[in-house]
């Protein structure tokens, strides 16, 4: 079991990543709180020694995505809110950024994950394939299709 100091460090280091992944998968703040509690409790109870920060970060991403999927599948999960509500937590975001976020969030789930991991976290297709436990070629295909969908949604100037 990890110490309180380790917990505090992990929360400071990875909570933004967990928050963004939650935003991609979930539709309300209460579910995000649940995921935070699940992920960081799992981290404290987990005795696996991480090789480096990258290994640890990949662990957080994988555990968060799995926790979100489990929560979505959960029979007891009944609280759902429309897509609009997601962005009520980001009132200060400028319109063009809001537009980009909405375009990404409107993608099917399998595309949202690879877009986030590739464009934001900077992972390569082989790295994403390991994190998501998918075939590398599948990841390449997902990236290509998601790029096309974003282009359609946001228009040609998005590439500029």
């Amino acid at each position: 079991m990890r110490s309180e100091q380790e917990l505090n460090r992990a929360i400071e280091q990875y909570s933004n990543t967990v928050r963004r992944l939650c935003m991609i998968h979930l539709k309300n703040y209460y579910d995000t709180e649940d995921i935070f509690q699940t992920v960081f409790l799992k981290y404290v109870l987990n005795s696996v020694e991480f090789e480096n920060d990258e290994h640890e970060k990949a662990w957080f991403i994988r555990v968060t995505i799995n926790a979100c999927k489990d929560l979505i599948k959960s029979f007891f999960r009944s609280k759902t809110v429309p897509l609009d509500e997601i962005l009520t937590y980001s009132e200060n975001i400028s319109n063009d950024k809001k537009e980009v976020l909405e375009a990404v969030l409107s993608l099917p789930l399998k595309y949202k994950n690879v877009v986030y991991l590739h464009y934001y976290e900077g992972y390569t297709a082989p790295e994403i394939s390991k994190i998501l436990n998918k075939n590398v070629n599948t990841v390449y295909t997902l990236l290509k299709r998601s790029k096309e969908m974003l282009k359609n949604n946001l228009g040609g100037e998005f590439y500029e």
Binding site: N16, R20, F36, V100, Y119, Y120, Y159
Partner: peptide, 26 residues
């Protein structure tokens, strides 16, 4: 494209209240 997505996601961060609640819960 990458920069635009990056700067959009940069606006999303974990609120202090969320971090504090998580810490207390764990």
């Amino acid at each position: 494209m990458s920069e635009k997505i990056k700067s959009a996601f940069d606006e999303i961060y974990a609120e202090n209240e969320l971090k504090q609640n998580t810490r207390e819960y764990v």
